[in-house]
Design a protein around this nucleic acid. Sequence first.
DNA 1: TTCCAGGGATATA
DNA 2: TATATCCATGGA
Length: 267
Amino acid sequence: MIFEIKKEDTFNIEQTLECGQVFRFKKTNDGYILFSKNHYINIVEKEDSYLCETDNKDYFLNYFDLDNNYLYIQNKYKEDKFLSAAIEHGKGIHLLKQDKVETIISFLISQNNHIPRIKGIIERICEKLGDNMGSYYAFPSLEKLASVGESFYKEIGAGYRAAYLDRVSKALQSIDLESWDKLETDDLRKELMSLYGVGRKVADCILLFAFSRYDVFPVDTWIKKVYKEEFGDIDAQKMSEMLIKKYGKYAGFVQQWIFFYKRSLNK
DNA sequence: TTCCAGGGATATA
DNA sequence: TATATCCATGGA
């Protein structure tokens, strides 16, 4: 089916996809094609709208978080110069509502890894294990992910993360992730960190991108570089806690603006 | 060629 | 509790 999304200052598809929260998309001549679970959406950029063709409109209307008031959130954070520059640069970023399993698997792969390589590993997992949807492959079912063993993940180039992928996909089979929605953020983080290979940073990314928890601040190598001057050479968890205190209940949005801005400056 | 990446597990003190 | 080391891979 086909529908339109109005272009606005506070929603830009390029910024939303390229800011590092999602990996299964490709740039096309005139827009992007994006995959999530067993769905796809082909987005063509027009003069004042995005023309979308998809197998599931309702899924992506929710996925893009179109009902949130981003201007309200942005206006809360104009205090310092660097942050307001980062907001100006990434004001079109929306925080996606991604699938929980897909996000957990994707960010397990992300650790100590480059974004282009993360994309490649996820793509190979889909090609080899996902349902053939015609022009693309779906993200594999948990049953499939759990059935192939550690050696499969080594063969497709996951490196030392192969053991994480094997054990976590098996563990998730007996966990009701939807029931975790009811947990407070701190308790939910603890549950996520009980998964083998999920530490504080990966847990915070999952909280932000799949559970819509905004009172988090994932601290990776880029964020460390930005805040080293302000906080000194402290460990990532302490830095994250201080940044949550500093920015409050919408800290996660700040993190995305800063991350996207910092990486753009180093290109 | 060496460095580094959306880090975390493990050993050691 | 705090710090050091190791982990696979490939793009830059």
